[in-house]
Computed example of a mutant assay.
Amino acid sequence: MRVSGSGPGSMRLRLLLALAALWLSDANEPGTAMTTRDINQQTRESISDYTVKGHDLSTPGSHLSTQDFNQQIEENISNLTSAMYSISIDGFSSAPVEENVTLYSPANITLLCNLTRTSTDSATVEVTWKKDNERVESRNVTINEIKNVWSTQYTLKIRDRNQMGNYTCVFKSDQEVQATFHLQVPQIEGKEHHIVSYVGDSVVLVCKSLKYIPINWIWYMSNGSDQVAVNDSLMPDKYIVDEKYANITKLKILNISEKDDTSYWCQAVFKLGESKGKVSLKVLTYMTPLKPFLAIAAEVIILVAIVFLYEMYSKKKQMHAEDEKEFEQIEQLKSEDNNGVENSTTRHRKV
């Protein structure tokens, strides 16, 4: 079969025939099979080879460059979803508005900001977009004004984690107001919680991702300022990782000791990044519940001792006072007796 012509239609037909021939040749070989990913890869390689040879893929009269055509082919192969997220701002006096945007996988998204102006607002409005406080290119930004509403949208083709982050639309005239979209991967349910257990027991740490299924789960434990990966092969008689359900991961720690008193991190791996959850494990000894009782008992003993010592001191002081009083009385009696003898002698002499 012979194919003639040099236009895009002829090129596409050549590619289709090449793909069919490759598929048939591989199908005839036992034990081989070509996947969709392989076909897509060969399609891109065929297009690249055809471009290198100097052929123009654009049709006469069109302005579609080779790069744009390849990009369109790539987008068709990827078959990504599209979505729009919007924030409405009620005048320049509004506080900054924020919205979380959860992305599970690569997608084409549009971020839309609508600002409602009042009659007292300035007629001149400057609109800019920022990514993590850095101004972005304006070619993907459109601005429209309808009556008292300013509208701006930013089109994004999210392909990897580097494109995730905070995107902010800024409206500026005499005043300034802004709205921020936080592009993030799915979050772990209950990102931080605490568990208390005792020495010698076993404990199970659980992390969940309810709406989305991660590609992989990874467990870490804190070791000072470092994080050490925890898995079955590390200490099989100590740690058991259960991933029976794709959206739930469990870490079972056997025969825990006081050394296991630390923080554990579960990390859910997605196509556009990772999300972490923290589980803090507090390990107690069996003497720990007795410590409050012992502390109270010690306080009672100390209090009783203080009261006892005070009573003894008071009693001793009282006895000392009584002895002094008795001594004074004796001395007084002796003095009176002496005075009586002297008076009698004087009387006898006078006689």
Score class of each variant (00 low, 15 high):
111 L>M: 10
137 E>C: 00
74 E>F: 05
19 L>A: 13
89 I>H: 04
92 F>Q: 11
38 D>P: 04
97 V>I: 08
100 N>S: 12
97 V>E: 02
86 S>P: 06
50 Y>R: 04
130 K>F: 12
29 E>S: 08
77 I>N: 13
48 S>W: 02
67 Q>S: 08
129 W>F: 04
73 I>N: 05
57 L>M: 06
92 F>G: 10
141 V>S: 03
130 K>M: 11
65 S>H: 06
54 G>R: 09
56 D>L: 04
9 G>E: 01
83 A>H: 11
92 F>K: 10
50 Y>S: 08
78 S>M: 08
59 T>A: 14
50 Y>F: 03
65 S>Q: 07
86 S>M: 08
114 N>T: 02
41 Q>P: 01
88 S>K: 12
86 S>V: 02
87 I>S: 04
9 G>F: 01
11 M>E: 01
115 L>N: 02
138 S>R: 13
64 L>Y: 01
52 V>I: 03
114 N>G: 03
111 L>N: 08
61 G>R: 08
19 L>E: 11
60 P>I: 09
140 N>D: 15
115 L>M: 01
26 D>M: 04
83 A>E: 12
123 A>W: 07
79 N>G: 08
84 M>H: 05
111 L>K: 07
8 P>Y: 00
12 R>I: 10
109 I>V: 15
49 D>R: 08
69 F>E: 07
21 A>W: 06
136 V>M: 10
112 L>Y: 04
16 L>R: 10
26 D>K: 07
59 T>Y: 05
46 S>M: 12
136 V>R: 10
42 Q>T: 11
45 E>Q: 14
14 R>P: 00
81 T>W: 01
12 R>K: 04
10 S>G: 10
104 Y>E: 15
122 S>A: 15
129 W>P: 03
88 S>M: 11
115 L>T: 01
66 T>H: 03
9 G>I: 01
74 E>W: 10
43 T>N: 03
38 D>A: 08
81 T>D: 03
73 I>L: 10
49 D>K: 09
80 L>C: 09
133 N>Y: 00
25 S>W: 10
46 S>D: 09
33 A>I: 13
98 E>L: 11
68 D>P: 04
78 S>E: 10
111 L>I: 13
12 R>P: 00
61 G>W: 13
34 M>H: 05
37 R>F: 11
127 V>R: 03
47 I>P: 00
53 K>M: 07
105 S>A: 09
123 A>D: 14
113 C>I: 03
69 F>Y: 15
71 Q>N: 14
141 V>A: 02
37 R>V: 14
51 T>P: 02
110 T>R: 01
88 S>R: 11
113 C>S: 14
116 T>E: 11
35 T>R: 15
76 N>Q: 08
120 T>S: 12
35 T>P: 07
26 D>Y: 05
51 T>A: 09
64 L>V: 05
71 Q>M: 13
118 T>H: 03
12 R>D: 06
70 N>D: 06
72 Q>C: 14
139 R>C: 05
118 T>P: 01
64 L>F: 01
131 K>D: 03
68 D>N: 11
33 A>V: 06
96 P>Q: 13
39 I>L: 15
8 P>C: 02
39 I>Y: 07
127 V>G: 04
139 R>F: 13
139 R>L: 04
132 D>T: 01
84 M>Y: 01
80 L>G: 07
